[in-house]
Amino acid sequence: MPLLEIRNLTVEFATASGPFRAVDGADIVVESGDILAIVGESGSGKSVMMMAMMGLLPWTATVTSDVMRFDGQDLADLSTRERRRLMGKDIAMIFQEPMSSLNPCFNVGYQIKEALRQHLGLDRKERHNRAIELLEQVGIPSPEKRLNVFPHQLSGGMNQRVMIAMAIACSPRLLIADEPTTALDVTIQAQVLDLLTGLQRDTGMAMILITHDMGVVAETAERVSVQYAGQKVEEQPVTDLFATPHHPYTFALLAALPERATEKHLPTIKGVVPGQFDRPSGCLFSPRCTFADETCKSTPPAVQPASLGYARCHYPISAKTEETA
């Protein structure tokens, strides 16, 4: 039984100008101890999908799914109270902006201990010791002193470490990292990623890493799910994905990596992710796809079999056509 199974998840926002579909039939399956990366451009619905799962979306959002199960429990069936018992304990989440994700009014120790009190019911002394232990675990020097420090007195990297300490406080079985390194300096990015993968290895928790950085994906993930305009367009193990991408979007994303550039100018994908008003009727990627024809523009493509990376494409690129291309 997979740890997390989500089938056909759809999230719609009610806006002043009508409904907007941010996630459109997405699937996620994560086994215990798995590291799944979800990649895609800004606006492809990666974060919204995770927030929907956590129940963090505002009331304007409508979430529907065929299956949304964590460890055999149907998340949609849980009462809000039962769901809260799961959030922050078995499923934890860290966010993109460490500086604004911590409450400026409370010191670091308070915010970590709060999670411990909520879910584990430790007494004061135990909470204190566990908090020190956690700060140590995420590599914050002189942890005892750091407990009394406020977020504005720490750097972004340190704050993200605090966020991670807070997330792993109750030994979650699934950690969702929503662009954990995007707001950080490059040197710090590597440290934080190392920390996350190290923690994942030590604790055996599953991890979903949301990112738009293919470099981060290559370094950390085992499986990659590529998302575009609210749909999963491809999913493969990381090495296979980098070797033989099947969806033209994945292909284009990889081609845009500086390390892979063969020409003087870095190849780009022209245009942006379709929004509320310019959603194509056929394949969502067709307006930007170099391979698209009339079929692509008129009919939504079906999902291809596993051998073709579940690519949602009429003409998936196979290893062979890539060679001839």
Binding site: L56, R85, M87, K89, E97, L102, N103, H119
Partner: peptide, 12 residues
Amino acid sequence: EDYIRTARAKGL
């Protein structure tokens, strides 16, 4: 604010 989302994600 983001920290409210964090607080909710903690299951408070």
